Computed example of a mutant assay.
Amino acid sequence: MRTGPAAGTEGYHHEAAFHGSDEELLAVTLPFVREGLEVGDLTMVALADRESEVVRRALPRADAVHWISASRRYETPASAIRRYREQFVEAVEAGRTQVRVVGNVPHPGYGAPWSGWARYEAAVNHAFATLPVWSLCCYDTRITPRAVVADVVRTHPHLVTPDGGREINAAFVAPEELLVEGLAAPLPAEPGPPALVLDDPSPAAARHALLATVARLDHDEREDLVLALSEIVDNAWVHGVPPVRVAMWTGDRTVVTVTDTGVGPSDPFAGLLPAEGSATAGLGLWMAHQLGQEVSLHRGPEGFTVRMTAGPS
């Protein structure tokens, strides 16, 4: 039987809590975790290292909690969705009636880009919709930018106040609407002209050009970017509209864009969730999102662009 505000319901219960001190963080998270352990829910904590340690020190039964490294779990939005879903399904198959998760995702307050994680916070409402999961997403207002707070409010159906009060969020926006809106975001301005431009390259030609052009990335970053580029170029040829253009910038960070003249995928969750028979979604787009670089999608006057960034933030 489910407990807490999700009692008597089915599917995903997605909450956001804002805190301005460690005391407020504990006031919200400790009852959530303690009750989960008492009733036998699988209870996970996937907070950033410092917040995780604050909660751990305050718990008398810390060993009973399933602690998850946030830096490993939140490598990319799509891989986080995949791994969480695998754990949730496994827990349900093992007989759990509810899974609880306390977490916080990367954002500029932690030195990380936000756009992909804004998509994540919207998409999980759909990705976990049928699963008996109650998640509490904690955001520290001392380090969370206002623009991130605004996105968090729009992506969470339920809000938790610092004193533990709970309310339905009237400002919540359907994930499909937010993801389509995000596609219209303009491409960031790059630092000068590209180091290399390829017109209508094959996936193999794009791979070879990237290897010959990029030198600053470590081996794993370079291999991930090469594989992602190959998948995205193939996706552009199979699901997009030619011509296909690849551009590369090799400054402090490596940036690669792949543009075709189509409108992009019709599925707003493309890239974040596996393709399911859609003629425009493309498995390659999802595979590229699993790898270790930042990926963003843009729909503009020139067509549909996938932008990949690798290297130090």
Rank of each mutant, 00 (worst) to 15 (best):
residue 216 R to V: 13
residue 168 I to Y: 09
residue 230 S to R: 11
residue 249 W to S: 07
residue 259 T to I: 02
residue 190 E to I: 03
residue 281 A to P: 00
residue 213 T to I: 07
residue 240 G to E: 05
residue 226 V to H: 03
residue 229 L to G: 03
residue 177 E to D: 14
residue 234 D to T: 13
residue 280 T to V: 02
residue 210 L to R: 01
residue 278 S to M: 09
residue 201 P to E: 02
residue 197 V to H: 06
residue 187 L to Q: 03
residue 273 L to A: 01
residue 259 T to F: 01
residue 235 N to H: 15
residue 250 T to I: 10
residue 238 V to K: 15
residue 227 L to N: 07
residue 175 P to H: 02
residue 171 A to V: 06
residue 280 T to W: 13
residue 233 V to E: 02
residue 204 A to G: 08
residue 176 E to H: 12
residue 220 D to I: 13
residue 227 L to I: 12
residue 248 M to D: 08
residue 282 G to K: 00
residue 189 A to N: 08
residue 242 P to Q: 04
residue 202 S to K: 03
residue 224 D to V: 08
residue 258 V to Y: 00
residue 234 D to G: 15
residue 213 T to M: 07
residue 180 V to K: 13
residue 224 D to W: 14
residue 217 L to H: 06
residue 215 A to G: 12
residue 206 A to C: 08
residue 215 A to I: 11
residue 241 V to Q: 15
residue 249 W to P: 01
residue 181 E to R: 15
residue 210 L to P: 00
residue 235 N to S: 14
residue 256 V to S: 04
residue 275 A to C: 15
residue 264 G to Y: 05
residue 232 I to E: 07
residue 279 A to H: 14
residue 194 P to A: 02
residue 261 T to M: 00
residue 258 V to M: 00
residue 261 T to L: 03
residue 265 P to L: 04
residue 223 E to Y: 07
residue 235 N to M: 10
residue 205 A to C: 09
residue 211 L to R: 14
residue 169 N to A: 11
residue 260 D to A: 00
residue 177 E to L: 09
residue 176 E to A: 13
residue 179 L to M: 00
residue 169 N to P: 08
residue 170 A to I: 11
residue 229 L to V: 13
residue 212 A to C: 01
residue 200 D to E: 15
residue 274 P to D: 12
residue 218 D to Y: 05
residue 174 A to I: 02
residue 193 P to W: 11
residue 216 R to W: 05
residue 198 L to G: 07
residue 265 P to A: 11
residue 233 V to D: 09
residue 275 A to Q: 09
residue 264 G to I: 10
residue 246 V to K: 02
residue 208 H to A: 13
residue 190 E to K: 13
residue 219 H to W: 11
residue 215 A to M: 08
residue 213 T to C: 05
residue 279 A to L: 13
